[in-house]
Design a protein around this nucleic acid. Structure first.
Length: 158
DNA sequence: GCCAACGTTGGC
DNA sequence: GCCAACGTTGGC
């Protein structure tokens, strides 16, 4: 069981969209960075915790708590010439990019990036490091617990 | 819209 | 395999 922070542009997929989706589950598609892909491919497991982060928006921050709901499978958008995420070098025989499904667990209080920067227990988060742009990054148990505390979320063990 | 930081590409 | 040029990310 691991913990992750995953960045999404809310104009594209917001946490509210996940809450509104059937089964509160959506495909996480469009990752086009090898390091982020490798986290999904090599380390993510069903049930892992996800901090659903909103980036490139007016108030960046953690918008909700989610959970990994599937193993990795080929990201369909890489094969679609009309998609922004089309990759001409990807083939169905040898896909380059993968998706996982994530499902919403709890919304909680929106936790802005600016607030996170002031929390000592979070200062080592990959997200907060200078120049960090990884769209998927590992989160420690301590960081996870702190973020959930700040958001006022408690998740009962299942 | 700016720009720092980072990742990728491609010529050599 | 180096590294300059280019493209992207993402906060501000």
């Amino acid at each position: 069981m691991r913990y992750w922070l995953m960045k999404s542009e809310p104009d594209e997929v917001s946490f509210a969209d996940v809450l509104a989706a059937p089964g509160k589950t959506v495909a996480w598609f469009g990752v086009r960075n090898y390091q982020a892909r490798n986290f999904m491919r090599d380390q993510m497991e069903v049930g892992d915790g996800v901090l659903f982060y909103h980036s490139s928006c007016a108030v960046p921050g953690v918008a909700g708590i989610a959970r990994v709901a599937s193993g990795a499978y080929p990201d369909a958008s890489q094969f679609d010439p009309d998609s922004h995420y089309f990759d001409p070098k990807a083939t169905r025989e040898q896909p380059r990019w993968i998706s996982v499904d994530v499902t919403a667990v709890a919304e909680g209080r929106y936790l802005p990036l600016t607030e996170m920067r002031g929390v000592a227990a979070l200062e080592d988060m990959v997200l907060l490091q200078k120049g960090s742009r990884l769209s998927i990054s590992p989160v420690t148990k301590g960081q996870w617990d702190k973020v959930l505390e700040l958001m006022g979320v408690s998740i009962s063990a299942t």
